[in-house]
Nucleic acid binder design. Structure first.
Lengths: 182, 182
DNA sequence: CACGAATCGGAGATTCCGGCTCCGTTTGCG
DNA sequence: CGCAAACGGAGCCGGAATCTCCGATTCGTG
């Protein structure tokens, strides 16, 4: 593969992540090509079609996050800390895009297993955190994970912005005396 | 206006609220007509175009909520309770739709003032609740309102579901001893 | 440096889809 | 009963987005 081809492929992926994150998965191929500073023809030589591009990005993101989650889950730290670590990991990934894809009706068959695995891993951590007494017990692990994904799967979400902080605090057991998150 | 015409108009509005809420403001006129059990022609006799329909629904919703907010603000209750009352009021309104409209780029000029007035009223309440010590002081009133709108402006949001409960708890000052929200 | 192969660019053919119209048919209502 | 108001939905229209195609350009190697 020629050097410029590889460079351009990366430019396309970067531009696509930006646009998809900013404007949702219906950003046009034209826009993406333009944002990458390339022609549409180039875009289509690298990816068969819009879905191909979306799937490559989403699958990569999910794989990264899943690996990170399993990695943290395997560490000898509290389940709550492991969960927090996952939240922090998600910060630099285009999760808003992934969420809108997996929410969106059907399609994207290859994403299903990844989403399922990730959910299972996170729900496991959530249940553990509840058993530890770090997370309130009056909601289901599923709800804990959903809450966290609301916090994290927004365009521009940061692990220490107001929404995330408030959700994490709301999730924490009242009596727990974890240090201030400021 | 003939009786059936009035009835059909109501059917259209109901169907449109449902569809717009469920699928966002790009639901097609065709779908709406079908969901209302009517033909497209009928829809277009009642509303000039898609935007007209959207605006009528959104403006009505905003007016209802604004009036309720001002009403609660005028009552001699704590600002926090007034804010909670507003959240509860929002429960039966199609706020997800309104939010996606006012977020969505430009357009809809007549919605601007309503949104501004509503925001001002709510931020006022939020600031008051913070002064009372009911709401944590480490975030801005603006952020408080944004947080509440995240809680409330979702399809299917209920004032006592997991996300709303967690956000309200996270918003509340830790030391405050408000009664349990279960 | 020169040449062939790989890559690019972007105009435009094509397809698709939703908005809106139009007019023959039906229905309320006095 | 009669007529005006309301309805229905097939289809026209315009625009938008996808993807193709081929001449122009660039890489990199002998």
């Amino acid at each position: 593969m020629r050097a410029d081809a590889r460079r351009n492929r990366a430019l396309i992926v970067d531009a696509a992540v930006d646009l998809f994150t900013a404007r949702g998965p219906e950003a046009s191929m034209e826009e993406i090509a333009q944002a990458a500073g390339l022609g549409v023809g180039t875009l289509y030589r690298h990816f068969p079609d819009r879905r191909g591009l979306l799937e490559e990005i989403a699958a990569g993101t999910l794989r990264t996050l899943l690996e990170a989650a399993r990695d943290h889950a395997a560490r000898p730290v509290s389940r709550w800390d492991a969960l927090l670590a996952c939240v922090r990991c998600g910060a630099d990934l285009p999760l808003a895009l992934v969420k809108s894809l997996s929410d969106g009706a059907e399609a994207h068959p290859e994403l299903g297993p990844l989403v399922r695995d990730l959910d299972a891993t996170l729900e496991d951590l959530a249940a553990g955190a509840q058993r530890e007494g770090a997370v309130r017990g009056d909601i289901t692990p599923r709800e804990v994970v959903e809450l966290l994904s609301v916090a994290v799967c927004r365009p521009g979400a940061r692990p220490d912005d107001a929404l995330t902080t408030v959700i994490l605090d709301g999730l924490a057991t009242r009596v727990a005396s974890r240090g201030a998150r400021t």
